[in-house]
């Protein structure tokens, strides 16, 4: 992007730089490394609900995860949930940010109002969407009834449950994209717009030639963060469907929670967690190699 390579900084590696990053580095050790090592350790033992008991079991817990937990199908559901959610969140967030950036009157108020889905407490989001999807008295059910579809139970059908929870999650998550893209639009130098305008570029051409390239870093990093969060977010699923019907909305973090805390199998839950971590690390790692999120 900008000129000036990665290794031209004059104070590179110096002690003064260390002062800027030492706290985050320690944080990595405390909240990531320790839990990771801890989970690896637990996953190699069996019956490890308490710290006291449990014996070394090698890879038994991993074997059980693959043998019994429908792990791959749950992972597939998780990927649909994650990619589906963030794709639509991006589109809506992008459109909203562009519209707010036109200098329309009351943009501030509108932006704040559009942010409320993100602000609403999680437990309430579940309750509100349950009411909206309610198969008898739900708002959406009512609306679908106008089009002749009576008593549609969106959350109760295997085919529609996942899209329905994704829809609710899009509603909850698009404001974050809007926020990030809004801030990103501010950082695009106006000269670029002016130059494009001078060249007689249409609006669509300018989006493609100026706005999207200008946002590329922001989009890459927002996408990365949103991917990780959405993947790991299951409160909404828990409230709306508890993973049902027939496991149609069961995602990996829900499985981990269920195994660890409902079934009292912290050992197997740890194995699921470590597997998830490894898969995510590979996916994110290879994405970062090619994306602009860490490139200068």
């Amino acid at each position: 992007m900008t000129a000036g390579g990665a290794d031209t900084g004059p104070s590179r590696g110096g002690p003064r730089t260390l002062g800027f990053v030492i706290v985050p580095a320690l944080v990595v050790a405390a909240v990531a490394l320790y839990p990771l090592l801890y989970n690896i350790w637990i996953s190699l033992h069996v019956n490890n609900l308490s710290q006291a008991d449990g014996e070394f079991a090698g890879l038994l817990n991993y074997r059980n995860v693959f043998a019994f937990d429908d792990f791959w199908s749950v992972l597939r559901t998780t990927l649909i949930w994650t990619l589906g959610s963030i794709a639509v969140q991006f589109v809506i967030g992008f459109v909203a940010a562009l519209a707010l950036d036109t200098g329309i009157r009351g943009a501030g108020v509108i932006r704040a109002l559009l942010l409320t889905p993100w602000v609403m407490p999680g437990v309430v989001i579940g309750a509100v969407w349950l009411a909206i999807y309610h198969p008898i008295s739900g708002l959406l059910t009512e609306v679908l009834g106008w089009f002749g579809a009576d008593g549609v139970d969106l959350l109760g059908r295997s085919s529609t449950a996942l899209p329905a929870v994704i829809f609710a999650n899009v509603w909850k998550g698009f404001p974050f994209w809007m926020l990030m893209i809004s801030a990103g639009l501010r950082a695009i130098p106006s000269e670029l717009h002016e130059a494009a305008a001078m060249d007689g570029a249409s609006y669509r051409q300018r989006i493609r030639a100026v706005v999207l390239p200008g946002l590329s870093t922001v989009l890459a990093l927002t996408g990365t963060l949103a991917f990780i969060w959405t993947f790991n977010y299951f409160d909404l699923i828990y409230t709306l469907t508890s993973g049902g019907p027939n496991g149609a909305t069961s995602t990996v973090p829900f499985l981990i929670w269920q195994t660890s805390f409902q079934f009292n199998r912290l050992d197997e839950g740890a194995a699921q967690s470590v597997l998830t971590f490894a898969l995510m690390a590979v996916a994110i790692g290879s994405y970062l190699r090619v994306s602009k999120a860490t490139a200068r």
Partner: peptide
């Protein structure tokens, strides 16, 4: 049976 029987909660049953 009412619609929504595949995801029926205690709250909804009591409501009905």
């Amino acid at each position: 049976l009412p619609p929504g029987q595949s995801n029926m909660t205690e709250d909804t049953m009591n409501q009905l």
